[in-house]
Simulated scan of single mutants.
Amino acid sequence: MMRKTDPYGRDIPSAIPRPDVVSPGEIVPGYNPPGIPPWLKPIPINTRNTQEVLRGYLNANEPKIARWLYSTWNAEREAIKYQELRNAIRDHEMPLEWLLQWQQDYSRFVVEVLDPEWRKAIQSAGTKMGENIEAYAGRPFGFTPTGRRIEEWIQTWSGELAVALFDSQYRAMRAILRYYTVDNPVSPDELGRILRPVIGLTPKQAEAVRRFRENLIAEGLPLKAVEHQVLNYAGYLHRFRALRIARTELSFSYNYGQLEAIRQAQEQGYFRGKVVKTWMTAEDERTCDFCGPLDGQTIGLEETFPGLTKKLPNVLAPPAHPLCRCTVGYQVLERR
C-alpha cells in the first residue's frame, strides 16, 4: 500500500539549509533548482504587492476567529461547577465533563469557524492570483476553489488541529491541577479561582501564570490585588494566543490558495516554462531571524522550504512557524 502524500509537504525534505542551524553570523547559502540552463530568465507572475494583500487579508479576518476563541474560553470558565472542583481535588484529575466539553468545543471551532474561513481565504487568494495569471498569459483564467488537493489539505489539517488544541489545553490544565491538588492543596473555591484564568492557555503560558501568582503572593500582596493582576496577565496571554491561532491558520490557507491557483494554471497550460517560487518576508523590523535568511530563496514549485517547528519541518509555502507573515512569489523561467 502506497503512503499518502502529505498535502503540506512536510514529508518532502527541503534543499535549503535551516537558518537556525547554521553558525551564528553565517549567511544561508542561496539555492536554485538544479538543471536550469543559463539562457532562461525568471518572469514574475506576482510581485511583492502580494505581501501587502496578505497582510490586509489577515488584518481584516483575524478578529472574527479571535472573538470566537475568547467567547469559547469564557464559556468554559463559567461552566466549571463547584462539585466538579471537589471531585478534581479528590481524584487529583480533571473531571470527564471538562474533557468532553473541550473536545466538543475545539471540534466545533474547526468545523464551524475555521473550515469556512480556510475556504474563504483559499478562494480569495486563488482569485487574486488568477488576476496575475491572466495578466501573464493574456487570457482568462478561472480558479476552482474545490478539488482533491484542497479537500485533502483541509481534512488533514482540521483533524490534526482539533486534537492539538485539545491536547495543549489538557496538558496545561492538568499540570496546574496537579500542582494545586498534590503539591500545594487548596480549597475548591480557591482552585476555581486559580484554574479559570488559565483555561485556553498553552502549558507554557499556564505555567507562567502560576509562577506570576506565586510571586505576587510571596510579595505579600492582598488576595484581591493578586487576583486582579493575575486576570490581567492571563487576559493578555489569551489575546496573544487567539491572535496567534487566527493569523497562523489564515496564513496557511491564503498561501495554499495561491499555490493551488498556480498548480491549476500549470495543469491547464498557462505557463510557457518551468514555474519556481521565491520566499518573501514582510521586510520590516518584525521579520524574525529564521525567516529573514529565507527571503529571496528560490526553489521548484513542488519543492519545500525549511520549517521552524517539529510539526512543520518542511513547508510547500509559508507559514514556517506560528505568527509567520511571509508569503511566496511565483516566476516562470523562459528563454532570454
Rank of each mutant, 00 (worst) to 15 (best):
D6G: 10
G9H: 12
R10T: 15
I16G: 11
P24C: 12
V28G: 11
Y31D: 09
W39L: 10
I43H: 12
T47G: 10
R48I: 12
Q51W: 02
E52M: 08
R55H: 08
Y57T: 10
L58P: 06
N61T: 11
E62N: 11
P63S: 10
R67E: 15
Y70I: 01
T72C: 03
N74P: 00
N74Y: 10
E78D: 12
Y82Q: 00
I89K: 00
P95F: 00
L96K: 10
L99K: 13
Q101V: 03
Q104K: 13
Q104C: 01
D105F: 06
E112W: 05
L114R: 06
A121W: 11
K128S: 14
M129C: 10
I133N: 09
G142E: 13
F143T: 09
T144R: 12
P145Y: 08
W153H: 08
L161G: 01
Q169G: 12
I176W: 01
L177N: 09
L177A: 09
P188C: 00
E190D: 13
E190M: 00
G200D: 07
G200T: 09
L201G: 07
A208F: 02
R211T: 14
N215Q: 15
L216M: 15
I217K: 14
E219H: 07
K224L: 14
A225C: 02
E227S: 14
A234S: 15
Y236T: 14
R241W: 08
A242N: 15
A246L: 07
S251M: 03
Y254I: 02
I262P: 02
A265Q: 04
R272A: 10
K274N: 02
V276F: 04
E285I: 05
R286T: 10
F290T: 07
F290C: 06
T298R: 10
I299W: 07
E302D: 15
E302F: 13
T304G: 05
T304N: 05
T309K: 05
A320P: 01
L323S: 05
C326G: 06
T327Y: 02
V332H: 04
R335A: 06
